[in-house]
């Protein structure tokens, strides 16, 4: 079946929400998302990972002690990914989670107010470039502040649409 048309289906099928300067939400490209598993308590691999995967802003995100997420909008080919994994050598293991977790961007003047309806984190204390794992309502999410009023939420694919729907619901007053 080499002629079979193989189709990728994104996890979020709904159109972006809002576009006011108060609040907007969009699904980010399902490009590349790699889970790096270092040894907890051992060396900080951020610099190594930036060397391997690129030093762009918000490329490497902390994901609990000794773990990181590598995020790119563009897909990484299988062979490139394998080559990168090999270069990690014994410092860390890598697991491709490009399909396992999806990214949702929320932005706008009211974005902190909106997120405060779900998470107990004091977002004032999260600097640009910082990440945190938390509960948003009843769903576990990884939050990264990518700009002053812009956050990326990384969520398990299976919960993606549900998180989207909940935020869209909470957004009604903005």
């Amino acid at each position: 079946m080499s002629d079979f048309e193989l189709i990728h289906r994104p996890a979020i099928s709904t159109k972006p929400v809002g576009s006011s300067d108060a609040f907007a939400m969009k699904a980010m490209p399902e490009g590349t998302l790699i889970h790096i598993l270092g040894k907890p308590g051992a060396e900080n691999l951020t610099a190594t990972l930036q060397g391997l995967f690129g030093g762009e802003a918000n490329r490497i995100r902390t994901f609990g002690p000794g773990q990181w997420l590598v995020v790119r909008d563009e897909p990484t080919s299988r062979s490139d990914m394998q080559a990168l994994f090999e270069r990690l050598d014994t410092r860390a293991f890598a697991v491709d989670q490009t399909h396992g977790r999806i990214r949702i961007e929320v932005a706008g003047r009211a974005v902190q107010s909106l997120l405060a309806k779900g998470t107990a984190i004091d977002l004032n204390a999260v600097a640009v470039g910082q990440s945190a794992m938390t509960l948003m309502g009843h769903i576990s999410v990884h939050i990264t502040r990518v700009a002053l009023n812009r956050f990326e939420l990384i969520v398990l694919r299976g919960f993606g649409q549900s998180l989207w729907d909940e935020i869209a619901h909470l957004n009604a007053d903005f």
Binding site: R9, A11, H99, K117, G137, H138, I139, L156, R157, G158, F159, Q161, S162, L163, D165, E166, H169, L170
Partner: peptide, 18 residues
């Protein structure tokens, strides 16, 4: 709060749901 009806609890969807 908002957690009633459709939003009572999250829905986890399989990639083969649709």
């Amino acid at each position: 709060g908002p957690h009633h009806g459709h939003h009572f609890q999250p829905v986890r969807k399989s990639p083969l749901h649709d």
